[in-house]
Amino acid sequence: MRITGYRTLTTVHDWGRPIGDVNGAVGSGKTVVPIVVLTTDSGLEGIGLGHHQGLDVVFPALEGEDPIAVQALYDRMLSWVFKSGHGGAVFGAIGALDMALWDLKAKAAGQPLWRLLGGRDRIVPAYASGLDGPLTDDELAALQTRFADHGFTAVKIKGGLDVEADLRRLHLVSDVFHDRTGAAPALMLDANESWSRKEAVRHIGRLEESVDLAWVEEPVRRWDVDGLTRVSQSVRAAVATGENLTGLEQFRPLLQANAVDVVQTGSVWGISHFLRVAALALAFDLPVSPVGYNANPIAHAATVVPNHLSLEVQDLHLPFGIESDQEIEDGHLVLGDLPGLGLVVDEAAIEHMNEAADWGRHGGPHVRPERAGRRLVRKPSLHPRSPGASPR
């Protein structure tokens, strides 16, 4: 079996609500989902989710190759761009192709990827998220009620600008879960790199006066070894980071300096990257937690990682035209037996789709605000209180 080419598709994930974080929001709640289909001379095809930008640059490293040699081909793609660099969107393109290669390999073996990788159990621990930055209190409560009703016992919310709003929302979510499940959840806060070092320590310190946080995510810039170390040593909560790091060389300084307590990876960067980061984290006795993405493809690899902590689930629905052989039961992701990643793509439906989406536009979550990390006053409008709501 040899790789002959690829084709790309773009579908839409309709979240059914505004989404975003401290950096910005997508008011429409509709985001693009790039799909890559890797073709072979046998007729077998592999599906990958991730970036399209950079595919034309790295695909020549795969053309004519046997897709079964996944990890060697992963290194071949990295080597293909070693002069120009593999960061950013190019790393996303490598991740999408890597995901498609693993899908192909498992399909060729007639096994779900979790089984091919050596997984003993198809059940993956997970926590609820939701990109809930722009939601009102009522909207946040409604969203987290749905997560609680699916059995989740841990939840992460967005915050970082207004400590009083963060406290109110954390207590609100805790109350929702307690009312629905009879127990308070583990709570996490994601600041999305919005603080300076001292801002982070001061803000988290205020929260910890009344909230027990399991972790705080990306309190300062992703590469700030000294800053992350300072925050980790100054607060009770664990510091989680890594979703925006691309390559082991970016993780190593953080782990060597004890700057991270929960090692994260972006699911969009692919299967091989997650496996390698998890192995590096294991060498430092650290847990690893993949950040969520459409259809949760990294869950397959999580089944074979001994230091896997929990997988982020961002939404209970799938993008248009994509089906996935998985279920959510008792706060866990349960993988099925369909060969490969378990993804089925309705290309005809996607081709005739008439939906617009956005994500990386100005004012969205992928554009860093000018005053990030340099704010002296809070912005209480980040998390609007629901009409008629009273202070806690």
Results as ranks from 00 to 15, higher is better:
His178Phe: 10
Arg361Cys: 12
Ala186Tyr: 08
Arg371Pro: 14
Ile157Phe: 09
Gly88Phe: 07
Lys83Leu: 15
Gly85Phe: 05
His86Phe: 15
Arg385Gly: 07
Arg222Ala: 14
Ile157Asn: 03
Pro391Tyr: 07
Phe177Ser: 06
Val262Ser: 06
Thr8Glu: 15
Glu193Met: 14
Ala183Glu: 13
Val216Gln: 07
Asp285Phe: 11
Phe147Asn: 03
Gly20Ile: 00
Arg222Leu: 14
Ala100Lys: 04
Asn307Ile: 11
Gly29Asp: 07
Thr10Glu: 14
Glu45Ser: 12
Gln250Trp: 04
Val124Asn: 07
Leu49Pro: 03
Val37Lys: 05
Lys156Gln: 08
Gly64Gln: 13
Ala349Ile: 10
Ala200Asp: 03
Ser210Glu: 15
Val163Thr: 14
Asp330Cys: 15
Asp41Leu: 12
Asp138Tyr: 11
Phe320Gly: 03
Thr31Lys: 02
Glu351Val: 08
His178Val: 13
Ile68Pro: 08
Glu199Val: 09
Ser324Phe: 06
Gly388Asp: 13
Glu209Leu: 15
Gly373Leu: 07
Leu382Gly: 08
Phe91His: 12
Leu113Cys: 11
Trp102His: 04
Thr303Arg: 01
Gly50Phe: 03
Lys156Phe: 05
Val33Met: 00
Pro319Val: 00
Ser272Cys: 11
Leu207His: 01
Gln233Phe: 10
Leu170Pro: 02
Gly130Met: 02
Leu228Ala: 11
Tyr6Gly: 00
Asp226Asn: 15
